[in-house]
Amino acid sequence: MIRTHGLTKRFGRVAAVSDLDLDVREGDVYGFLGPNGSGKTTTVRMLLGLVLPTSGTAEVLGRPMPGSAAEVLPQVGAMVEGPAAYGQLSGRRNLALYDAAGRGSRQGRAGRVDDALARVGLSGVDKRPVHAYSLGMRQRLGLAQALLTSPRLLVLDEPTNGLDPQGIRDIRALLLDLNAAGTTVLVSSHLLAEIEQTCGRVGVISRGRLVVQDDLDALRGPTGRQLLRTAGAAHGERAAAVLGRAVEDRDGERLVVRGDDPAAMVAALVAAGVPVVEVTPERRTLEGVVLDATGAGSDDFSVTDQGRVGAA
């Protein structure tokens, strides 16, 4: 659905995007992660033909961009750098004008607008002027615009910006429903928690370069350590003595143990009279993957509404 090769954009001496090789496959919910200023929005704008690359190539829906924009863009729904709207007009009127500017026929326009408003939860305020909308409502209106054409590909830049936790959950559910119905989704975001709960494939950009691109399950693979819980702190101390230098950390009854053979570990503990309540493989978190790949420090990240970490 989206493929780039060596995609590069320079502004004078500054390389906003360098040698980018994106691979978004049909059926993906693809999370495009990176801190502000990392090149996410510049990349999205190049994919949509809004900015010309300095070098490299981009294909969207199997066609070169921006050369095939007239053919490609009617099949793409997009929201980039926040929604645009006429503030004095209602949300409904804005959507009708947006639909009229596209290839949608006049016949069926009201139904398309109704459906888009309902999908993003704006049916009850559709006649209110947009200048009276909150930031979260404007985000919902921008997403409604992107959905008017029933796109094959949906490209969204920070779609949950300004939404409360319930709104974030609603948009997450909507994107997953659209994907289940056949829409490929590219979500550009700095919120690790949202990407982790929504996306199946992830690309991480740092200082204009793609530093990670893989399936989320592969990125969150086992670390080679086991998380072990015994039946109390005293047993945890005994387990640490039995396992010796393989124990990397212990907090009362809970231990982090280096090794990829949990059966042998449990057998050794049971033989020593240590009751084991639970043992599970430790898996990497997306947060850890991103921090390792980007070299970002705590100053580059902030806590989201849901208590998880996201790039600021």
Rank of each mutant, 00 (worst) to 15 (best):
V247K: 01
L122I: 00
G124Y: 01
D99Q: 11
R220F: 02
L95I: 13
L176R: 15
L52E: 15
N161P: 11
P281M: 11
G108E: 00
L163P: 10
P66V: 12
G297S: 08
D260T: 14
L163G: 10
R63C: 10
M46W: 07
P262W: 13
N36D: 06
R152Q: 14
A146P: 02
V29L: 14
V257A: 11
I195Y: 03
D115S: 14
S18I: 04
G37M: 11
A293G: 01
Q75Y: 04
E237P: 00
T183V: 15
D305T: 13
V309E: 05
D217N: 13
L143S: 03
T54Q: 09
Y86A: 13
E59M: 13
A234K: 08
L122K: 00
H235D: 15
L47A: 08
R152G: 06
A239M: 05
G307L: 07
G236D: 03
L97E: 02
S302F: 00
E158D: 06
S134Y: 07
V212P: 03
E253I: 02
D251Y: 01
A181C: 10
R140N: 10
P262L: 12
L47M: 03
G77I: 08
P64V: 08
E194P: 12
Q75M: 11
R209P: 01
G108P: 02
V185M: 04
T42E: 03
L89T: 06
R169Y: 04
L47F: 05
L174E: 05
Y133L: 07
R45V: 08
D251P: 02
Q75E: 14
T54G: 07
G310I: 04
P165S: 12
P165T: 13
R10H: 14
H131Q: 14
E81F: 05
Y98G: 00
K127N: 00
P262I: 11
S134G: 05
F301T: 15
G259M: 02
S298K: 01
T304N: 05
G91Y: 00
M137G: 01
E81P: 00
D170Y: 03
V24L: 12
R229H: 09
V202Q: 10
G244I: 02
T54W: 09
A132F: 07
L20R: 06
V276P: 09
R245I: 04
Q139S: 11
G27H: 08
V270Q: 14
G221S: 15
R10F: 04
V14M: 12
A311C: 09
L154W: 07
G82C: 09
D157R: 02
R119T: 04
M137T: 08
H190K: 01
G295D: 06
R238N: 06
